[in-house]
């Protein structure tokens, strides 16, 4: 970080052999110019990740696309090429608008609530207060608890005569049947998921907040800026890279949430909490329609891709500094 640290490193450097692939001695220009060497190093560095992506992501994805052009009944062992038939079915699927609506609601609700709560908790725990370490651990603890155990406890608490309504009753409120009413099932699923994972984002935000130089706050106070204004004008811009990172992780994660829905609502009441991944899972694994399930996978992939591209573009406008 400081020159004094890099000097000894430099002293030892020439003793080491030249980088991979370079037979030529260091320094004198040969075919292996610095630039060429750099390029080669770049390719070698990304090679494991790239090979893994091709093998474990792109090829399977290509296969999924291939399956989506077929009708594939696993039990009957039928695998018939049907061309775009599954895509025609997708366009005409009467369930699809509802599924997309539920997916949008779920993701939007989850991202907004998760990021807002994570930021709120991080700001609270960033105060100079005794015992913040203790609270930090408490808020983080659900992250390491088994998802299935976590969800089952909440299912139990959210039932009509469960803990949540018991608590509400003590203040004279007659709570709804959370998981079984149209209006509340979705929000319940979202909240359960937020409590489970908000700790991770909280920790990332906390780290970012602690990286904001105190002098900036001092300066703002001298200028007489309100707390609110300081937060929006100083804190937010400075932690924007973290906001971007967490929002991408959370959006992508929200589109992949499945076990919680399977346990809490099984997509109901009606189909109000049937999100795309759950629908895909039903079609492929429960209804044995792997071809159509694959078609839904392709759709899901396209949606996630589009969303990420949008966020990635927005980064240029929002994020404070990235070249």
């Amino acid at each position: 970080m400081t020159p004094s640290r890099s000097t000894p490193v430099a002293d030892r450097a020439p003793a080491r052999p030249a980088p991979a692939g370079a037979g030529a001695p260091v320094g004198r220009p040969s075919f292996w110019t610095t630039r060429r060497r750099d390029r080669l190093t770049g390719y070698l560095f990304i090679a494991p990740q790239l090979a893994g992506t091709v093998l474990f992501v792109l090829i399977p994805l290509g296969l999924v696309f291939w399956y989506s052009l077929h009708e594939w009944n696993v039990l009957a062992d039928e695998f018939t090429f049907t061309g775009g038939e599954n895509y025609a079915k997708l366009a005409a699927d009467p369930n699809l608008p509802g599924v997309l609506r539920a997916t949008g609601l779920f993701s939007a609700g989850l991202v907004v609530l998760n990021l807002a709560l994570a930021l709120f908790l991080a700001v609270l725990l960033n105060q100079k207060l005794r015992g913040t370490t203790f609270f930090r651990v408490l808020f983080f603890s659900p992250v390491v608890v088994s998802l299935v155990a976590w969800t089952i406890v909440w299912q139990f608490m959210l039932q009509d005569n469960g803990g949540v309504n018991g608590l509400l009753a003590t203040v004279g409120v007659d709570g709804p049947n959370w998981l079984r009413s149209d209006g509340t099932a979705m929000i319940s699923v979202i909240v359960v998921q937020v409590f489970k994972n908000v700790g991770l984002n909280m920790v990332l935000f906390l780290a970012a907040l602690q990286g904001v130089p105190q002098e900036l706050y001092e300066a703002a106070r001298v200028d007489g800026a309100s707390r609110w204004r300081t937060f929006w004008r100083i804190t937010m811009p400075l932690i924007s890279p973290t906001v971007l990172l967490t929002s991408i992780i959370t959006v992508v994660g929200s589109l992949q949430v499945f076990a919680q829905i399977a346990i809490l609502t099984q997509g109901g009441p009606g189909t109000s909490t049937t999100v795309l991944v759950y629908y895909l899972y039903q079609q492929a694994f429960q209804f044995h329609a792997f071809g159509y399930g694959s078609t839904l996978s392709v759709l899901l992939f396209a949606i996630v891709l589009a969303l990420t591209v949008v966020q990635w573009q927005l980064r240029k406008r929002w994020v404070h500094h990235e070249n």
Binding site: V54, L61, G62, F65
Partner: peptide
């Protein structure tokens, strides 16, 4: 980008299937 990607994936798919 996406088109190229899909073509590559499609080829790979055929290879693996066979």
């Amino acid at each position: 980008m996406r088109v190229r990607l899909l073509t590559a994936a499609g080829l790979a798919a055929l290879m693996t299937l066979t």
